[in-house]
Design a binder for these strands. Structure first.
Length: 402
RNA sequence: GGGGGAAUACCCGAGUGGUCAAAGGGGCCAGACUGUAAAUCUGGUGGCAAUGCCUUCGCAGGUUCGAAUCCUGCUUCCCCCA
């Protein structure tokens, strides 16, 4: 096995990375691996807590792929046991607990999606239940004895929760211990993750040293902010772009991204060379955003689909043309109905009548042509076949009579 | 085990007997402006057969003409002491 020169590897590794700890050990490890021809073992752990991976997850995943391309060994940990605990990192409250079955189902979905970024045929995949499930209580105690409560409380998220009088459950304290033990078991050289993982990464070093193993280096990416441009991208915050979403869905979301996030997204989510990024950012933000979107969408589907998505957005959203494929809803109506009932009861465009009423009186409803606004909720509408109804910014439907 | 505190709409949070479907902020929704960015402005934000009616302030009772507000019991959470 031959590896690129260390300097060259470092350049790839450093892109979009916020912190490497300890930084000074990295070159040495790379050099040693190059000299001996032994690839480094790169760890990335993910807890199967949901069914969709989003772009936030892909930041360390991409870093993993880069390591793979440099010739190193990817080691994926599916945290089926840690998922039962719930990672307290960066959280201000306890996560909801998951069932074993749920976790297993999620794990399958995750692996499928991981394969879109990482070359799974060359990766080791482990579930940490493989070693935690059979651990007995004595071993468990031994593990816990490695960490003091004071150490745990130095964690930012725990100390914040203490300060704000929010509960910290005992099982959450075990999370970093488990994560660190994973590193011992798989003998990781480098662990990938976000900056909020610092504590666990360092704990892993302590435990590896304790077991007379080489200590891992943490390579930490910045936290990717979500579509709101403020909070981290996350499922529960609803500010994410899922990697399994359709090209057009992704497109629409990308265009809603605040301009200020563009550089970060280019750096963390694409391979576009940094000087080229600077050039793009010097131009109009709208164009830059479209380039960003098509680069990323292209990776998860195809370049053609990405281009099509950009064009579709330009037509339907920017030019406000009628979309090509409008969702059709069939209704059976012989008599005219009031607009409120049409919107909420017949077409189910809103959850409640009150919602429909609001939407109508506020000018969010149009029929057949944008601009053909109908603001009287009581207006009686004689529904005709092919009638097009818009409700708010996002919903347009075509009525099909039976 | 003992003591103290808290629970209000999506979130935070005001409200201590009627004027409370409940201030204010955030978020979100709609509209204007725009590049479906940001900023800004306007309106909205429990439900319904809608100038009215019904349900909601942890849960269950009670006092009262009238309760988010007072009383009793319960549940949950937090803090302190052990």
């Amino acid at each position: 096995m031959s590896f690129p020169p260390v300097e060259q590897q470092l350049e790839v590794i450093r892109r979009g990375v916020e912190k490497i700890v300890p930084e000074q050990e990295l070159a040495g490890k790379l050099q040693k691996s190059r000299d001996t021809g032994v690839p480094l073992r790169i760890k990335y752990g993910i807890d199967p807590t949901g069914i969709d991976l989003h772009l936030g997850h892909t930041v360390p995943m991409r870093k993993m792929r880069q390591f793979q391309e440099l010739g190193h060994q990817a080691v994926i940990i599916i945290g089926n046991y840690t998922a039962l605990v719930g990672d307290p990192s960066g959280r201000d409250q306890t996560r909801a607990r998951l069932t074993v079955e749920k976790v297993e189902a999620n794990a399958e979905k995750y692996l499928e999606q991981l394969g879109k970024v990482i070359d799974l045929s060359k990766a080791e995949v482990h579930r940490n239940g493989d070693w935690f499930a059979n651990m007995n209580f004595a071993e468990m105690l031994e593990l816990c004895s490695k960490v003091t409560v004071a150490q745990l409380l130095t964690r930012d998220d725990f100390s914040k929760r203490m300060a704000s009088e929010t509960a910290i459950s005992l099982h959450e304290c075990l999370y970093p211990v488990m994560q660190a033990w994973d590193s011992v078991v798989i003998k990781s050289d480098i662990e990938l993750g976000g900056t909020e993982q610092l504590y666990s990464f360092m704990l892993a070093r302590d435990m590896q040293r304790d077991q007379k193993l080489a200590e891992q280096i943490g390579v930490m990416s910045p936290i990717l902010v979500g579509l709101d441009g403020v909070r981290r991208m996350g499922k529960s915050l609803g500010n994410y772009i899922g990697i399994a979403e359709s090209p057009y869905e992704m497109m629409k979301k990308f265009m809603q991204l605040p301009d200020a996030c563009l550089r970060m997204y280019f750096e963390l989510l694409t391979e576009v060379p940094l000087d080229e990024v600077n050039e793009i950012l010097a131009g109009h933000p709208k164009t830059a955003k479209q380039k960003l979107a098509s680069a990323i969408i292209g990776e998860y589907s195809s370049d053609d689909e990405a281009t099509a998505a950009v064009e579709q957005w330009e037509r339907e959203i920017s030019q406000k043309e009628m979309p090509d494929d409008i969702e059709e809803i069939s209704v059976k109506l012989s008599e005219p109905v009031s607009l409120v009932n049409l919107i909420s009861k017949e077409l189910k465009l809103t959850a409640t009548n009150s919602d429909a009423r609001r939407m109508i009186t506020q000018g969010g409803v149009w029929i057949n042509e944008r601009g053909e606004r109908h603001t009287d909720p009581h207006e009686m509408i004689a529904v005709t076949h092919g009638m097009i109804i818009g409700c708010g910014k996002k919903k347009i439907v075509k009525v099909v009579t039976e």
